[in-house]
Amino acid sequence: MVESIGTKRTVWLFATAVLVLVTMWMIFEWVPTERNLGVVQRALYVHVPLAWISMVAVGVVAAASLMYLITGKRRWDSIALASAETGVLAGTLMLVTGAIWAKPIWNVWWTWDAKLTTTAILWFFYVAYLMLRAFAPPGNQAYRMAAVVAVLGAVDVPIVYYAADLWRTAHPELIIGPAADSSGLTSEMGLTLLVSVVAFTSLYIYMLVDRYRVRQSELEISDLKREMRNYLYAPSTSDVPATAQSLRAAAAEPIGD
């Protein structure tokens, strides 16, 4: 079973690698250079897919966190954590690549534009989610608090998406998603962007599964250590004095109203 999952992961990674290579060939060899922005416009084929996967990741974190709050199952929490980490990575890269792209085009690295500011807020939300999990005492309470942060953070996603329509911003209009207007792109540009989005989504899925497996292993280790501790240090019933036994029994009883 584990062997089969490992093989599937390798095949998936290989397919992703091929897709990434095709994308890189399209970006640097096939797609025409945009006339006004010049060669740096090719940043679009990385920047937009990064934005796309960070939004997908946020959606997955919110949905999995909601399921965790409803069901209390650890599996959902693991999915949320894996997606949050991958999403923060993609979000960080999106912000960095955006800043580098902004410098030659807007002549500034950063501006407090509505789109950029709401994106930064979203990024801080999920960094806070990861920090809460890392520094709060481990346990269901911390995971539940983090899940609430994740669900609240997702409210910012539509605001980020529609920011360019809602406010006057320096950021270009939407070219991906339900409200997109991709008329500014030629068919080659549109196709390259589509292939790039597929490649990055495939990479996101690979990283999500990889991180999920690590989380499951972490949980397995903590279960094994608990089992070991119980096994090594729990005194046998015969060693415990009668008073202590009765105290334990009393403590085990549910507290009435």
């Binding site: 740096v40 792209w101 410098k103």
Partner: peptide, 14 residues
């Protein structure tokens, strides 16, 4: 318009 002037930015992004 010299499009090659921003190649270093593109390189950094990738």
């Amino acid at each position: 318009t010299n499009t090659e002037t921003n190649l270093d930015f593109l390189f950094a992004i990738y």
